[in-house]
């Protein structure tokens, strides 16, 4: 029985244990890896990815995948760039418009998936290209800049010793963890991922729940984009695409099942940090960007493989227990 408990603790905290293992390995390679400055630096670099991942986690927990995230970010970014460069729009307005745009883009995806009765994956294969095209067209592939000090504070400011971006990302994670675990809306998301038809026949309004997921996805993708543009200082159509890959891999490493219905937000944070440390390590080892692509792709396949393996493995275990009962 005690054995079972240890097993359970290990399984529930797998992403954090992997993160710990990866960190220890890297602390040998690079002695100042565990310094406070480096830890804060890694957190700060990845705050925007974690923020985006919050939104995508809800989507994936409900059993769907959105491939257009990076292109949504690109479009939101250049919109802000245009507004600030052409109109000199103040930061509070920029933030509001970015959030509104994020929500609209992700609700367009949700709406199309609902109306056409196809998966979000299929819809976003189409919309990602559309969003990408719009982004390049309206920005004319130019770098857009002119952001003020207030905007730059989002990613570069500090509250005491802690970067502002890390602080608000931490807040977002806490709030959304509570939302997922303690509210009935959160349970409905798990219900959708667990068995969508059973959820519908249990009187859960599947359409409304999906629209709600779309709302949060758009919100957090927009917030993440704001943090990213603030970090980079300029907006360009090429900024954003690719993020979806890191985010989805991180979420899978974080214990969210590709079939939905399982996982925790805290695990996702660990998953993203695993990706970050590996990227950091590869950089230190002097691997080129393209070699890193290869490595990241393999990690993603490994994460999916492990997820599927766990599923089938569990099935076998279950079969044994039922046999025992009979």
């Amino acid at each position: 029985m005690k054995n079972m408990n240890i097993q359970k603790i290990v399984r529930n905290n797998m992403p954090w244990l992997i993160l710990l293992a990866v960190s220890i390995i890297f602390s040998f390679i690079s002695p100042n890896f565990f310094s406070i400055a480096n830890v804060i630096n890694i957190l700060n670099q990845n705050a925007y990815i974690i923020t985006c991942a919050i939104g995508i986690t809800l989507v994936m927990m409900a059993g769907q995948i959105d491939l257009s995230v990076g292109y949504q970010m690109s479009l939101i970014g250049v919109t802000m760039g245009l507004l600030v460069q052409k109109l000199g729009m103040p930061t509070p307005w920029l933030i509001l418009i970015a959030i509104a745009e994020g929500i609209i883009l992700s609700e367009i995806n949700t709406f199309l998936a609902l109306k056409l009765k196809i998966t979000l994956l299929m819809v976003t294969v189409g919309t990602m290209t559309v969003y990408n095209g719009i982004s390049f067209t309206i920005s004319e592939s130019k770098n857009l800049s002119g952001f003020d000090a207030m905007f730059k504070f989002i990613a570069k400011g500090y509250v005491g010793p802690i970067p502002f971006a890390v602080l608000i990302t931490f807040l977002f994670v806490v709030i959304m963890s509570i939302f997922l675990n303690k509210t009935y809306y959160g349970r409905y998301i798990y219900a959708l991922g667990g068995n969508e038809e059973a959820a519908r026949l249990s009187g859960i309004n599947v359409t409304k729940t999906k629209l709600m997921i779309g709302f949060f996805e758009g919100l957090f993708v927009a917030l993440g984009t704001i943090m990213l543009i603030s970090r980079v200082g300029t907006a360009h159509s090429g900024t954003g695409p690719g993020t979806e890959f890191t985010v989805i891999t991180g979420i899978l490493l974080g214990g969210v099942s590709i079939r939905g219905g399982e996982g925790k937000l805290s695990g996702v944070v660990a998953g993203i940090l695993i990706m970050a440390i590996l990227a950091n390590g590869m950089q230190l080892a002097g691997w080129g960007t393209y070699v890193q692509f290869i490595a990241k792709g393999i990690i993603m396949l490994a994460a999916i493989g492990f997820d599927v393996y766990q599923m089938t493995h569990r099935k076998i275990v279950v079969d044994k227990t039922t046999e025992e009962k009979n």
Binding site: Y184, A198, L201, E262
Partner: peptide, 24 residues
């Protein structure tokens, strides 16, 4: 299995899913 139960969740989770909102 396909339309009634949420197989991957507990008895507790399943038995109250339709009562969550009402008693929230």
């Amino acid at each position: 299995k396909g339309e009634g139960a949420f197989l991957n969740y507990s008895i507790l989770w399943n038995s109250v899913i339709m009562a969550l909102k009402k008693d929230a």
